[in-house]
Amino acid sequence: MTLDVLYFAWVRERIGLPRERIETEAATVSALVEELIAREDRYAAAFADLSALRVAVDQDLTDFGASLSGAREVAFFPPMTGG
């Protein structure tokens, strides 16, 4: 499947781009993260501590165990600081 993967705040800075399109067969967010980490050091650096990250699938906040079945967009970012 084709996924749009988005990065925000320091995750975007560490990976060095705001979004990319990825071909993957990952069934879950965790599996996608494993694929990304295996790619390059900058991904490994960004995903070193998953407890410091949040994830949204198709713009809904979820967790790393979430299924990617039917998903079109996955976003990774640090805890939000609005207000």
Partner: peptide
């Protein structure tokens, strides 16, 4: 909105 709306401040 502080913790659940996707904003980040630098």
């Amino acid at each position: 909105l502080k913790s659940r709306a996707p904003f980040w401040k630098k």
